[in-house]
Design a protein around this nucleic acid. Structure first.
Lengths: 370, 370
DNA sequence: CTGTTAGCGCATTCAT
DNA sequence: ATGAATGCGCTAACAG
């Protein structure tokens, strides 16, 4: 019924071993033989049995890409970019040669699902795993992740972090591409301060996420430097003290990275502190919700209140007014992560590269009135 | 080095077969035995070898989800929804039980890559494949797809179409969920006509895509019914005659489904026909570009010109003014496709279900000026 | 309910 | 440059 490598060998009048060699291409084979085999493959419409070859070779051509939320373009862009480097250009024949199969796994931001996917990928003997987006800063989960990743690395799976800082104990990694969330957050708030804002609301992302913490820390650094913080700016990375401080700050509200959260948090912020003249959102999607809330309260952007986002997703430039935000080179980072996963590119020195964030000043921010 | 099922069996003092049975859970095993095995699994930190079990069982736990562009929320939402039904809720242990691994494959809208991915999935002996989004209407490609899908189906892979019409010869399919693109497009243009618009520009998607064709056909149906078409409304589905007609229509411009295309096509439309009072875009992303172009020309929306989109992506309600569009229940459709792929839900009668599109009238459309 | 026995289809030694 | 033989780790009959 199903045609196997042996069938191809028979038709090409060679041994199975030879067929295997031409298919994998990593061994010298006479040109004439190769051609005969290839013809037999086409004639028989043969498709390699992936599980069988993975079993024999003890490795598969799967590359996993873990994302928090694939419906969010932030992840979609990175994942799509990574896939361009992994899937290979295709030879146009639809025949599928030596390319890898990039598989995007949607964790929904849940630590459990993240681990489950890693186990599934481990089970598949994945060639590489790319982890995107902020990590959950829970000691237990971090330990479990470190252990799991170490096991994957042991089994020969390449590990790449993209837009996420490496794990504290992370030696089992090929490379990490970390976004400069803190620097971006700082420059964004500095911009607002330089415009004359003194009371700035902050709609933060979910707690216990590195992305959330770093962006917020950058914000507070800028406030602190300007002497605008009623609360301490928090300690160094990972000491956790920043959380308590932020928890007490009435100008900071936490919520998920979605539009609705931005809307509601902004309403709450406006209630708590009607004198805020600017609102910084954890990302562009949240900022869109913030804009809607501001408008629904009868205020204009930026005349009555400035709003800023983060990421510079494609729709941000089309917001009205266009959104001031911090651009992250998501596509480039994703592509680079893909190349690292494929071993096409050498890891950065020290295993970690920090990717710069660029302030994009547009129409949604302006000097406060009066 | 690597722990195998035999090791677990030895430690649990049972046969390998028994371990296999508790792991797969599809066979009666005494509770006490099961517990012993499970403990051994935990003690040894055993992870099933996917390739080996797929080889032996002649099927894998992979489910492929093909999308045109994962950076586009249109696909991200469907894919994410499908994955919620496929990945399983996870048992919170990170241990990975019987769940499937949903893998999202980004074709970039390229027919070759689509076929390549199907071959890769076939190679992996995927349990199911979900194809999302519009299909390319190229006879050669359609034939190749039909052949490939038939082979997959033969090998026991379940096939589900989501937001895409089934193939003409498509019998090798479990189910198709098709969006009512034509009806949605028609109602949208009817709405514009009822508002008083007579000259309506249309920014269409790429040619040779079912989605593009159906939406455009709906538009032209509405025009025709109102006696507003200078050109024939095109024949029935698939006869291709609609294309030629549309090609000659100065009020229709084709382009990719992205913001930039919307911007440029709108400029072109405005140049060709300065008297248009409304612009219908192929989707919301394109509509955003159209809005930007309209504004850059110094015109106001909707006072000077109305703009409408399609899909009702999350950001559309936050556009200013909020975008009139056609809502497609992307999440629900994706989830249903996921359930169909898992065999959790029965296929619709006749194998195909049409999913209704709902007109969302918002601020970006209004009556033309006097 | 559990153990025994055979392969699943291929990549790789080792020969030649 | 090619062929022959071996085993990857597991599941699925088949017994018991």
């Amino acid at each position: 019924m199903t045609v196997t490598l042996a069938d191809v060998a028979a038709r090409a009048r060679v041994s199975p071993a030879t067929v295997s060699r031409v298919l994998n291409g990593n061994y010298p084979v006479a040109a004439s033989t190769r051609e005969r085999v290839l013809r037999a493959v086409d004639d028989l419409d043969y498709v390699l049995n992936g599980p069988a070859s993975s079993l024999a070779a003890a490795t598969s051509d799967l590359v996993g890409i873990l994302v928090n939320d694939i419906a969010d373009p932030f992840f979609g862009i990175m994942a799509g970019a990574a896939q361009t480097q992994i899937g290979g250009p295709g030879d146009g024949s639809g025949r599928a040669g030596g390319e890898k199969l990039a598989v995007i796994c949607n964790t929904g931001g849940s630590p459990e699902r993240e681990l489950t996917y890693l186990t599934l990928l481990q089970r598949q003997r994945a060639a590489a795993v790319v982890l995107t987006g902020g990590a959950v800063e829970n000691p237990e989960h971090q330990a479990a992740m470190a252990a799991k990743l170490a096991k994957l690395a042991d089994a020969g799976t390449r590990i790449v972090f993209c837009g996420r800082p490496p794990l504290p104990e992370g030696d089992a990694l090929v490379a990490a591409l970390a976004f400069d969330n803190r620097g971006g957050g700082r420059r964004l708030t500095e911009h607002l301060i330089s415009l004359g804002h003194r009371r700035i609301g902050y709609v933060a992302g979910p707690r216990e996420r590195t992305t959330t913490r770093h962006r917020l820390e950058g914000h507070r650094e800028a406030l602190h430097a300007a002497g605008l913080d009623d609360f301490p700016a928090g300690g160094g990375p990972g000491d956790g003290s920043g959380h308590r401080a932020a928890d007490d700050d009435p100008l900071v509200v936490h919520g998920p990275y979605d539009r609705r959260s931005g809307y509601e948090a902004t309403l709450e912020l406006l209630r708590r502190a009607p004198d805020v003249t600017a609102i910084v959102a954890a990302n562009d999607t949240v900022a869109l919700g913030a804009c809607a809330a501001v408008r629904d309260q009868g205020m204009r952007i930026p005349q009555d209140i400035s709003v800023a986002g983060f990421d510079d997703l494609p729709f941000s430039v089309d917001a009205v007014p266009a959104l001031t935000t911090v651009r992250l080179p998501l596509f480039e980072a994703g592509a680079r992560a893909g190349r690292l996963a494929m071993g096409k590119e050498n890891p950065p020195p020290g295993g970690i590269a920090t990717i710069a964030a660029e302030l994009m000043i547009r129409g949604s921010t302006a000097a406060p009135r009066g």
